[in-house]
């Protein structure tokens, strides 16, 4: 049997996690832009599922269940940012339209999406440097 303390902590964690997951679902439907939707999807949903898994870990009577739930939380927190980064990068590369309220796009005109090379900022590109190609001096040579 689980104690009253475990019961209360687990219930609170369950309610917080469900609230965050509902927020993630509403954000997916209501936000105007792929990048804003992605922020709701990655942060709110991973934190919500992490809270629910932690609730399972707290209320478990066996150590094996706790270890499994904590491993699930670690896995979720490791993979969700990577997935969000990959899909956001792909969305930027294929030119998904942005919300009209977005004011800053610092990568605009500076990234060659065909060759995956980064053009330098304006001041750095005009500085004479040996070996600088037509794209400028800041170059991602590994790609």
């Amino acid at each position: 049997m689980i104690s009253l303390f475990q019961d209360i902590v687990s219930s609170v964690l369950l309610i917080i996690g469900t609230f965050l997951l509902l927020l993630a679902g509403i954000g997916i439907v209501r936000l105007p832009d792929i990048f804003l939707r992605m922020s709701a999807a990655s942060k709110a949903s991973s934190l919500g599922a992490g809270c629910i898994l932690l609730a399972v870990a707290v209320s478990a009577a066996d150590i094996a269940i706790t270890v499994r739930a904590v491993a699930g939380v670690l896995f979720l927190f490791l993979t969700a940012p990577v997935a969000a980064h990959m899909i956001g990068r792909a969305a930027y590369m294929i030119g998904v339209p942005r919300w009209k309220g977005t004011v800053i796009d610092e990568l605009k005109g500076r990234y060659d999406t065909r060759r995956h090379t980064l053009r330098g900022v304006d001041g750095a590109a005009q500085r004479p440097q040996r070996g600088a190609g037509p794209l400028g001096d800041v170059r991602d040579a590994g790609r």
């Binding site: 369950l14 792929i34 999807a41 990655s42 629910i52 898994l53």
Partner: peptide, 22 residues
């Protein structure tokens, strides 16, 4: 667009994890 659908599927998968845990 395609990334919108992928993000929606990602959220559904995460909520599915929470449902399994509950």
């Amino acid at each position: 667009s395609l990334p919108d659908r992928v993000v929606a599927l990602d959220v559904m998968g995460t909520v599915a994890i929470a449902i399994f845990a509950a």
